[in-house]
Every structure is written in C-alpha cells, then in structure tokens.
C-alpha cells in the first residue's frame, strides 16, 4: 500500500488498496492455526500456500486479525507443526 497516494476526485469510482477491504475477516474463523515453532523447519510452505498472505515470511507470525482459518497451512505443513484450535 502506497502511503503518499494521489487521490482522484470523488466523482470517479476509484478503490484504493487497503488491508481489511473485505472487513474484519479474522472473525470468519472457526479454527485458528497455531504454529509449533519447535517442530517448524521454516520450509515456508504455509507462507506460500496461504491464500491471503497472512503468514509473515520471516517470523512466520500469523495475522489473526485477518486469517480466515481455512486450514490450508495446517494441512500442507510437512511436519504437522500447525494445529487448528477451535475458537472460543
């Protein structure tokens, strides 16, 4: 997202890239993925397969504000280092 963007006049139907354009998508989640850092081998499968790009490439922290809980990261993890925990 560009910080100093030039806005076009309001008469034009323009949309600007922002996080959360689809709303608070973290609230869609039924199960939350949790990564066991001890088992993790940093293969980055979870990072690349996540359809929403909510797993940080370096820290492998999951952005729970927007993670939709699809479970692909857990399913694809070759070390079963990610578990899906039911949300309260």
């Amino acid at each position: 997202m560009s910080e100093q963007r030039n806005e076009f006049p309001a008469k034009y139907p323009v949309s600007y890239p922002v996080t959360g354009a689809g709303g608070d998508t973290g609230s869609w989640r039924m199960f939350r993925p949790e990564i066991d850092k001890d088992k993790c081998i940093k293969c980055l499968f979870c990072w690349i397969y996540c359809p929403d790009g909510v797993i940080d490439r370096d820290s492998l922290e999951i952005n729970y504000s927007y993670c939709k809980g699809c479970g692909i990261c857990a399913k694809e993890c070759p070390r079963n280092a990610i578990s899906m925990i039911r949300e309260e």
Binding site: M1, P17, V18, T19, G20, A21, G22, G23, D24, T25, G26, W28, R29, P51, D52, G53, V54, N63, S65, Y66, K68, G69, C70, G71, I72
Partner: peptide, 14 residues
C-alpha cells in the same frame, strides 16, 4: 493480495 480481502477463506484465486 492485501490481508482482509473479500475472498472466501481458502480461495484459489487469491
């Protein structure tokens, strides 16, 4: 692809 987009969770398009 920005986080918090409107696609279904697990969407192949995003």
């Amino acid at each position: 692809v920005m986080a918090g987009n409107g696609a279904c969770g697990g969407c192949p398009a995003t």
